[in-house]
Amino acid sequence: MIEAQGLVKKFRDKTRGEVRAVDGVSFRCRPGEIFGLLGANGAGKTTTLRILATILTPSAGTAIVAGYDVTRQSQKVRSSVGFLSTATALYGRLSAREMVEYFGRLHGLDETLLRQRIDAIFARLEMNDFRNRRCDALSTGMKQKVSIARTLVHDPSVMIFDEPTVGLDVMAARTIIEFIRECRDRGKTVIFSTHVMSEVEKLCDHIGIIHDGRLLAEGTLANLRQRFSKQDLEDIFVEVVEQ
């Protein structure tokens, strides 16, 4: 479960002065559900997700992730969260197996459990052909799979995806989309940010439209269609943003 309550994140900018990247964002995302944060570039999606993943501390407000407070119990939040973005940021000279082992050990898994998890994840993601190949020699799709395996190794109950398909080809993007669905089907709490309307329509159970740091509309796709009397999500998005 993710519960964000009045999240605010202020930055100081030399030219613009105080910038409120996130301005009072509140929402709730339940287990077995995909919550889609839909917004243009610079809307505050990544900042919100980074607060939830404890990478940033909120200037005000609070968020409870998997039952833990992001500011006071950040270590526990981190052990309950898997964070995946387009930037795989793998260590090029480590093999796929070593890479996942490294993160598993940092999450405190013992060697027996780690080996079992790696074998299961590598089999499920069909990674055994390249498990001992160095990451810098892998294709983009393979790197994405390593990144997914790293995200999954500690079996987090909450998954955070920050524009995970940006810049990926169709096949790599499909792998990610399937993986997100699988996470939901396994009862994980999934939050997903994107500016691609079709992905939101395909995946999300709940949608939040964010603009200038504020969550302007929230609901299921059916709710939003009914409220704005429009079928096309893009039209709904434009109307919400222009209001």
């Binding site: 480590l94 050990r105 940092l106």
Partner: peptide
């Protein structure tokens, strides 16, 4: 423990860097 894990990873990484 974590310092040891990071150290080991850095060592492997450096030794594989020509």
């Amino acid at each position: 423990r974590n310092i040891g894990i990071v150290y080991r990873k850095e060592l492997i990484d450096s030794l594989r860097d020509q």
